[in-house]
Nucleic acid binder design. Structure first.
Lengths: 151, 151
DNA sequence: TTGCTCCTCACGTCACGTGAGGTGGC
DNA sequence: TTGCTCCTCACGTCACGTGAGGTGGC
């Protein structure tokens, strides 16, 4: 499932939030603030940290999220929307490290087409299910049965 | 998530295999034969049994699947294709029991529309992802970077 | 002192995958 | 005796959900 790792033309997808002029540590967010901003649970943020995706500073025991953490989270959530698993996202972030700073998702052409094919297959499955459900609804398969409503 | 349980017009979806003229016990299938016929793993069949979906006869320790088991399995797999969870399928089979013999899936109009809405939401998410991936592929977001290919 | 937010275990969920270790009949 | 098919535990996977029980600062 891993790509051959030696392809050249990489696509860098710049979905991360804007640089925002190097904020001071005081603008760092609490876990509750970040979760509200991105619409995820506290558990999700802690889980991503355990997986090594985000590494917020600590103020005592409490987590403090800075701009770089927000950008990473934005990238991760965007990749999830594109249908990638966390394992794949981990690889995509790792492959972008160094050259791009790890805030961007590096998709090769091959990875793009593979994901497109994967999603199109899913879409076909859904379309088939929808067609069948609509036939069921409009009575194509209907064979009305009586409930024991009366005596 | 459970429906109110009191709606009347039920749709009976008849996807189950044909009756096949009451086969003798000798035509009962082994687990390997049934798994091949439906393209599922042995583990899946044992798992469905543990969940109470199928109850094959036993010949010693070995499972023997009869016609009724095949019909049940066909119904379960069809419901899965329609995007229902095993918990939902369990309810759908139970609600059909007695009146229909449990081989058919009983979908109310409301269950149909709810599932249709659910799948359409999924489809929209996939369409959005596909659009973004195609933009990425065609270079809309491209910001080509160099790999350290040369010296 | 109460209430809020934060924390760390740690087990649960969903639908199976994947061995481990053992049995039965050709 | 070997090989095949079958069996029953039982832990692993994926992406978190959901308490339990405890701490810190206003």
């Amino acid at each position: 499932m891993r790509s051959d790792g030696g392809d050249c033309s990489e696509r860098t997808l710049a979905w991360a939030a804007e640089p925002a002029a190097s904020p001071a540590d005081e603008t760092a967010l609490t876990i509750a603030q970040l979760s509200r901003e991105f619409g995820v649970t506290l558990r999700t943020l802690r889980f991503y940290e355990a997986r090594g995706f985000i590494s917020p500073r600590r103020q005592g025991a409490a987590r403090r999220y800075r701009q770089a953490d927000r950008e990473r989270l934005a990238t991760i959530l965007k990749a999830k929307q594109l249908g990638f698993t966390l394992r794949e996202i981990s690889d995509l972030l790792a492959s972008g490290d160094g050259a791009t700073g790890g805030q961007r998702l590096n998709l090769s052409r091959q990875q793009c087409t593979e994901q497109i094919n994967f999603l199109e297959r899913q879409k076909r499955d859904i379309d088939n299910a929808l067609a069948e459900l609509r036939r069921a609804y409009t009575g194509h398969y209907v064979n009305a049965i009586e409930r024991e409503v009366d005596g």
